[in-house]
Amino acid sequence: MSLLKLDRVTKRFGGLLAVDHVSLEIEAGELIAIVGPNGAGKTTLFNIMSGVFIPDEGRVIFEGRDISRLPPYKRAPLGIGRTFQIPRPFSSATVRENIAIGAMFGTLGKKVSVDESLKIADRYIDMVGLQLHRGKAAGSLTPVEKKMMEIARALAMNPKLLLMDEAMAGMNPKDIDHMVAFLMRIKDEEKISVIAMVEHIMRAVAGLAERVMVMHQGAKLVDAATTEALSDPRVVEVYFGGAPKEFKKNWKKTNGPESDKGTA
């Protein structure tokens, strides 16, 4: 049984088809990336997974249970944690309190007291390297620190599935490599599945994910192993508006006629 399964989910905003019959499965312990240019429907898909939006059609199944209509605050205790594209810290609270809030209302929920949650928070502060900012108001952190704090807050929820929305946008290559290494480590250490959403930082995608789903205009374009997906001419076309002819020819030669197998 897969951990999370999207079954032909669709979301419309008036006449705009933001997510168009997208299906996706992620197994426990897997790390996949969802890529696609701006406006491809990635964030809407994330919002459907975390419960911010209810899909118009299709189902969201988590550990065999249909959660399509469950509000977000009921999904978090089941084990879905997420970060946001633009960090959303609880600004007036300290870094430690922010992270403790994750522990208090996540999967541990009723099992942990406030004091225990603060202790858990300390562990994740050490893990993401925010020791010097423990008692600072979260609103006063730099954008990169806020991202790290959000990741710590989501991890403190002790999730089974972590949804990371553009965790690396705006970072320099060194920070990206650092973050990629960090994500690989926590995935193994904490035994969680990760769905990372990336707009265009292929450096991160290549280093991070075993599998990539490429979205374009709301629909799934390709769902394949990373190297395969990133060299697919359709993906190249989405990003660059048409792959060079040479590229297409070479690609056909090496991949053969079965190259359409990733089509939705």
Partner: peptide, 9 residues
């Protein structure tokens, strides 16, 4: 942040 709070459970 009410929306973030909801997503946090």
């Amino acid at each position: 942040d009410e929306d973030a709070a909801k997503v946090m459970g």
